[in-house]
Design a protein around this nucleic acid. Structure first.
Lengths: 197, 197, 197, 197
DNA sequence: GATTAACCGAGACGGTACGTCACGTCTTTAA
DNA sequence: TTAAAGACGTGACGTACCGTCTCGGTTAATC
C-alpha cells in the first residue's frame, strides 16, 4: 500500500509551472476575516482586501471562483461548529445546544455575512452547492444528538430525524432571518419543550 | 380635532404646487414587478426601471425611501397571502396550507427577491422593520388555523401558539433558504405529522 | 435672417434633461494638460485625471470617445499654431517659421504626446480623422506663406503647393520622429536653401 | 589582443552551464512576426507570444531587453530594405525607389508597428538608439542613389546629401504618419519633379 | 562520472490601469 | 411643485498585461 496513490488516482500529480504559495491562501483568508469583522460585507471590497493581504487581485481570483466563494470559505474558517454537549439527557443536550446557538448570534459583531451569501447563492449554482454543504455540515451535531436520543429510547425508534433536525434549526433561523422575533433563553426552552412534549 | 390627524397624514394635506400624479405609483410598481420577474433582483437597476416606467429617477425616490422599500412594496403587491383553507380539521388545514406554500415556491419564476431583501435589511433599519411587518402579516393565516384548532380542542388549550407558528413555518424556510433539502408534498406530510403527533 | 437657424438645421435644439456643465469641460482639459506636462502620456491615467479634475470618470467618457480623443483636444487647446511672420520675403518667412518650429520642439517639456496619438490613431478611425484634421489645420500657415510667395513672383505661378508644404514640413518631422538627426538653426537654413535653390 | 574583444563579445564567451538553444531565437521571432501580422501591435501580448512560440516568458526576456526591442528586431527581420534600382538615371532611380516605397505601404497588412516603436522609443533610450540606427540604415539606398547622381553630374558637386535624403523621405513619412495625404504614383512623380526641378 | 550552473517551459506573483456599471443627488425645461 | 430627462461624483467591479520569480527538469562544460 503506497501513500502516493491518492483518491484522484494521480501518483503525485505532476504540477507544472510555479506552484502556488500556500501562505498566500492563509494571508487572504485572514485579511478577509479581519475585513468582514471590521466593516461587514458592506464595506468589503476586493481592492481593499488585496491591499490588506499584500496581494494582487488576480491572485485572489485565481484561487476563488468569486468574491462570495471566498467569503464562504472565510466563514467556514472563522466560525467553528458548535460542540456536542453530550450531557446524558436528550433534553439537556438540545437545551444546551440551542442556548449556545442563541449566544453566538447575540455576540456576533456583524450579522450580514450569512444573509449576503444567501442572496449571492441565488445567482451562482456553485456557491449555492457550497453553501448547502456548509449548512448540512453544521447540522451534524444536532443529528448526532437526536440519534443518541433514539438509541437511549428518549425518542421513538422510528422518529423522522430529518424533520426533527428541521424542527430544531428551522424555528431558530426563521426568527433570525425573517420574523425578527426574540432569540433568547426563553425561546430555547419553549422550543425544546414543544419538540420533546 | 382636525382632519390633519390621520394615519398617514393624507386626508387633506394642503400641498402647494403641482400635485403628484396618482397613476405614476401604479406604473412604477407594475414596471418593478415586470422587471423583477424578467431579470430577478440581479439585473434590476433603477435606471432601467425609470426608463421602463417612463419616469424620472427622482420621481421614484420622491415616493419611496429606497430601492429596497420599493421592491418590498412590489412584493406585497404581487404576492397575495395564501388563503385559509378552513376544512374543519386542523390536520387538513395545515396540510393544505403547507402544500400551497410548497407549490408556490415550486412555480415561482425568480426566487431571489426575499433573499435580497433579507440582506438589504441588514443595512437599513426601516426596511428591516417593514420586512418583519410583512413576515408577521403573512403568519396570520397560520395563526388563525392554529387558534381554531385550540377552539376545537384539537390542540391543548395552553398550546404555545408562537412556537407552533415557528414550528410550521421555520422548517419550510430553513429548507428554502439554507439547507436546500427538498420541498415537496412528502415533506409537508412529514412535517404536519410531527407537529400533530 | 435668423441667428437661431444653425448649420445643423436645428432651431434651438430642444435638449432635454440636465444640460452638461460647460465648466467641467474646461476643468478636464486643464487637468489633462497639467498632467501631460507633469508626467507625459506615460504616467497619465484616467483615474488620476478624474481625481485631479474633481470629476467622475464616467463624466469624462461621456464627453470624449476615448482617452486619446481627449488628449488630442488638450493638445489643440494647449499648443497654439505658429504665427505667420509675413516679413515681406518668402525666404525670410520660411526661415523664421522653421526656426520657431525648431525652437518649440527644443523647449517642449514632454515630447511623447504626438507619437502617442500617432500610434493610437492606428486603432481608432475617428481619432485618425481628428488627428489628420489637426495636422492639416497646422499646415495652413505654411500654405499661406507659400501662396504669398507665388503672388509676389518668388515662386513660379504653377508651383505645386501641396508638394511644397510636404517639402517644408516633411523633413522636419522626419528628423523629429524617425531619424533623430539634429533639429537646429543650421538645419533650418540648409532646408530653406534647398527649397528655394 | 584577445578573442574576448569583439563587437558583441561573442567570439568565445566562456559561458558555463547549459548554452542557449539557438533555434529558440528563431521560433520567438517567427511567432512575433506572425502575431504582429495577425493582430497588430494592439492584441500583441507577451503572454500570448510565449504560448504561441512554446516558450517561457523568462526565456524571451533573457534574450531581449524589452518587448519593443523584440518587436524592432522582428521588423528588421521581416522587412527587407528596398533594392537600389540603379537604372543609369537619377530621376528614374528616385522614381522607382519612391514607387516601391509607396507600393510597400499599400500592401502592408498592419501599419501600426512603426508608430508603436516611435512612441515606445520616447520612454526607452536604448530602443530610441536602435530605432534611429534602423532608420539610418534604411536611408543608405537613397544616399547611394544620390551620390551616384553627383558622380554622374546630375546633381551639383556641392549638393547637400543629408538634406536631400530628408527631402526624399521626409515628405513620404509625413504623409504616411501625419497628414494622411494620399501616397500614390502621382505623389511620387510630383515629389521627384520638385526635387530635381 | 559527478558536479555545476545556466538553461528550459509553465505559470504564479504584486502591481497598475482599464472601461463599465449602478448608486442616489442635482439641474435643467415644461406642465 | 411635480414631472421626464439625464448629467453629476463616487466607488467597486472583474480583466488584461506587465516584468519578475519560482518550480521541476534538462544539458553541456568543468572538475
Amino acid at each position: 500500500m503506497s501513500a502516493a496513490v491518492t483518491v484522484e488516482g494521480d501518483v503525485s500529480p505532476p504540477r507544472r509551472g510555479r506552484p502556488r504559495r500556500a501562505d498566500v491562501d492563509a494571508a487572504i483568508l485572514a485579511a478577509t476575516i479581519d475585513l468582514l469583522v471590521e466593516t461587514g460585507v458592506a464595506g468589503f471590497s476586493m481592492d481593499l482586501l488585496a491591499q490588506r493581504a499584500g496581494v494582487g487581485k488576480a491572485t485572489i481570483y485565481r484561487r476563488w471562483e468569486s468574491r462570495e466563494a471566498l467569503i464562504l470559505e472565510a466563514l467556514e474558517t472563522a466560525v467553528a461548529p458548535l460542540p456536542d454537549p453530550d450531557t446524558g439527557s436528550l433534553r439537556r443536550d438540545l437545551q444546551t445546544y440551542m442556548e449556545s446557538l442563541v449566544e453566538r448570534v447575540g455576540s456576533a459583531p456583524r450579522n450580514d455575512v450569512l444573509p449576503h451569501l444567501l442572496e449571492a447563492s441565488c445567482y451562482d449554482d456553485q456557491l449555492r452547492a457550497s453553501l448547502e454543504g456548509y449548512v448540512r455540515d453544521r447540522q451534524s451535531t444536532v443529528r448526532t444528538i437526536l440519534k443518541r436520543g433514539i438509541t437511549r429510547g428518549e425518542l421513538p425508534a422510528d422518529a423522522d430525524v430529518d424533520v426533527l433536525v428541521d424542527a430544531v434549526l428551522g424555528p431558530f433561523f426563521y426568527r433570525r432571518l425573517l420574523s425578527g422575533a426574540p432569540l433568547d433563553r426563553r425561546f430555547a426552552v419553549r422550543l425544546v419543550d414543544h419538540i420533546l412534549r
